[in-house]
Design a protein around this nucleic acid. Structure first.
Lengths: 234, 234
DNA sequence: CGATTAATTGATACTTCTCAAATCCTGTGG
DNA sequence: CCACAGGATTTGAGAAGTATCAATTAATCG
């Protein structure tokens, strides 16, 4: 983690995507003064499961994964974060240790906000509080969906749906590929299956012309059929 | 849902277990005035997945399950609620439709608090806000655990762990049985497996003297061994 | 450009699901 | 309070779906 080129909250375009979207002028300058700009290299761990964070990170530009270590240290990816997302607030607000590790999936610029500062904003700005609650409650809904999928869907269905979720979350690059580079092992860890199963299923999806593959670049060719394979209805 | 014998928030013992534990005298009398006491019979549905609740329920005495309908209407139990728990706040705060259905597992007395009243307390009492955030964030952590278990553990392990969680959550009756009556199908729906698998595994656990069974009454006889079977470490 | 990690493919084993049939139990109405 | 109907539970057999292990090839990073 290094110092990074300083950002000024007042002028931050990413802010509009974040929970800080509705802060006043004074609050913003206060924020700018108390935060620090940091940089994480691809692969670098931002938070360690079980640790006690001293504040939260707001992603300015980058991508990260939240994961837990399960059986025999096997990685389980719970969710992702991108521009504007807040890292570590769950632990700070629940008063518990961090329940996940967070690692950068790409070179990531973020701002660090100390715990005390976060609580200050919460106590002085009910709108911000509501934003945080909204965020947490939305994530709870997403977690419920994931739980149901893991419990009831087949590996094939889960992988198909996951590809669509990744496309939705990270968008596409210039060539139409899902704009995130994940190893087959990481894909497996999201879906809750073995790496080999992911490989076999991706080959099958490709054969069926649902997707195309160039190394780690995956392009959804037929979202409608893929959704059908994944039994995705919403 | 019927009217129920009225409760007065100021004198409610259950309140101390709830998010309302730190309200002031005035706030409590205000609460008492605006809430309604309701009664749900065992099996009755308290909230329907997809609906828009007009307020939240606080369980005064009873038990409920949160579940989603997954593949082909199959029920997936996400979590449980008991005395002092708040129902429906996730939907109200995220501004989304209810993501789960909630049904009473026993005859349940609860208090209904209209949406506007909830927001009023949130805006006027930062401590209450923090309590709610704490709740939501804690649940997020629990959801993460469940996700990891579903993705990585075997059915056997999940069932063993689930029995321990149920014992922890609902405690024991006079005979030492887990104090909740669930059908085999409901157990299956928590663990994410087929009803027949639950039955076979329960028989095996009984054979191995980890538990004893009298109909729907299950008693954990050897929690240590059961935890070992479930690969439970915490 | 070599060393290490990632991806692929094949063969095999096992867990878990599904379907079917029989018995048991629970909640209900008389 | 008892009998009954319908749902819940149990057991068995067979079929899928996935995991695991091993060996090879490809790709990535310093």
């Amino acid at each position: 983690m290094n110092e990074s080129a300083p950002h000024i909250c007042e002028m931050c375009n990413t802010r509009k995507l974040s929970a800080f979207s509705e802060l006043g002028k004074e609050e913003l300058s206060d924020l700018s003064e108390h935060k620090a700009c940091v940089f994480f290299k691809k692969g670098q761990i931002i938070m360690h499961e079980g640790s006690r964070p001293t504040g939260v990170y707001c992603i300015h530009h980058g991508k990260a994964k939240f994961y837990k270590l399960g059986q025999e240290g096997k990685e389980q990816i719970i969710r992702f974060a991108k521009d504007g997302d807040l890292l570590g607030y769950r632990s700070i607000l629940s008063g518990e240790a961090v329940s996940v590790s967070i690692a950068a999936l790409e070179d990531t610029h973020a701002c660090f906000l100390p715990k005390a500062m976060l609580f200050e904003v919460i106590e002085n700005n009910p709108k911000f509080s509501l934003n945080i609650m909204k965020m947490a409650c939305h994530e709870l809904g997403e977690a419920g969906k994931l739980i149901t999928n893991l419990a009831q869907k087949s590996v094939t269905e889960r992988l198909a749906e996951m590809l669509l979720i990744l496309k939705e979350t990270f968008g596409e690059d210039a060539d139409g590929n899902i704009d995130i580079s994940l190893t087959r092992e990481e894909l497996a860890s999201m879906v809750g299956t073995a790496t080999e199963s992911v490989i076999r299923l991706l080959s099958k999806f490709k054969e069926d012309e649902l997707i195309s593959i160039k190394g780690r670049k995956i392009k959804v060719e037929n979202p409608v059929k893929l959704a059908r394979v994944g039994n995705v209805f919403d």
